[in-house]
Amino acid sequence: MAGKTVTRADLCEAVYQKVGLSRTESAMLVELVLKEITDCLERGETVKLSSFGSFIVRKKGQRIGRNPKTGKEVPISPRRVMVFKPSAILKQRINPGLDGGHKA
């Protein structure tokens, strides 16, 4: 079902329509918002955006993986990954029919 893909351009348009800045300024600010979030995560900090969700950086230790094609075992190096935890409000908005948010 999911038809359309929303991109930066659509977010700029939303800022332009709702806040009334010029298109250039809207684009600049959308970029700045993403940059600030990215910089924060790069420092390993959690970003909590109320009524939207949280971005959390997790550290993963080394583990053994498998090349699915050859079946060969390969070590997966320790790394940092980022996870998004949607807020109860966001989950509810995506499930309009349900009573929603049994748990946080």
Binding site: K4, T5, V6, L11, V15, L90, R93, I94
Partner: peptide, 19 residues
């Protein structure tokens, strides 16, 4: 406005791709 647009897109079943 940015977060609201992302939520609106997801609630329509759309994808939001931010390169």
């Amino acid at each position: 406005a940015i977060l609201g647009e992302i939520i609106a897109a997801l609630s329509r079943g759309d994808r939001v791709e931010l390169r």
